[in-house]
Amino acid sequence: MTIAGWRVPMMASLLVWLVLWEIVGRTGAVFLIPPVTGIVEAGIRLVQTGTWQQATFDTLRSYGLGMALAIGIGVPLGVLMGRSKPADKLLGMWVNLFVSAPLSALVPVLMILFGIGEKTVVATVFLFAVWIIALDTRAGILHVPKSLEEMGRSYLASPVQLYGKIILWAALPEILAGIRLGLIRGVKGVVIGQLLVSILGYGALFELYSRSFDMEHFWAITFMLFAAAMLLSSIVEAFEKRIEYYAGAR
C-alpha cells in the first residue's frame, strides 16, 4: 500500500481500526466497546495485581507443559508416519481426523478423566497442538530428498547419524512450520480449556470480568492474549526465515 508515494506497512492499518474503536468507545454508544485508552489503562493496572500475575503464571505453565508434550510426542509420531508405510496407513486417518475435529467437544471428556484443574488444560493444549505438528513433521520427512538419504547410507551413516545429522535436519523447515501452527493452536487450546474449566488462569479472569460486566478488564486480557499469540507466531516465523534458504535448496 502506498499513499502519496510513501510505502505504508500493511499492519499499520490496525492503527486506523484502533482509532475507530477509540471514537466509538468515546461516544459510549456500544456498551461492549469501551475506549482503547480505557482498556490500556485497565491493562496497566491489571498487570500490577497479584491475581493477574498468578493467572499468567498458571496459564504459561499449562501452556508450556502442553506444548512440550505436543512437540515431544508430535514430532516422533510424524517421523514414524513419514518413515513407515504401515504406521502411516494405520495412524494417518486418525491424525487427519483429529487435526480438524471439534476438539472443544472433547474437553468435557478430559475434565472427567483428568479432573477439573490444570491437567485438563494441559491435555487440551496437547490435543489442540499435537496433530498439526505430527502432520507437518510427516510432510517434512516425506520431503527429504531420496538422494540425501542415499548419500548418508553410501557414506556408512549409522541409524542415529542418519536421523540426527541428515533426516531431521532436512525436514526441519516443515517441522518448524508445524510447531508454529501448533503454538497458535495451543494458545487457542489453553484459552478454550481454561474457559471450560473456568477456575484457572485467564479462564477464571474471563469468568470474573464477564460476570461483573467489566469490559475494560475483559478486553485488556483479550488483547494480551491476542498479542501473545501474534508475538509467538512471529518469533517462530523469524526463526523459520533464518533456515528458509535451505528449504528451497534441498
Partner: peptide, 19 residues
Amino acid sequence: RGPGPERAFVFQDFALLPW
C-alpha cells in the same frame, strides 16, 4: 552387501547438506 568404505558415490543432484 550394502555400501562400503571402499566405494564412494557422487550424486546426480549433488545431495549436499544445505545447512
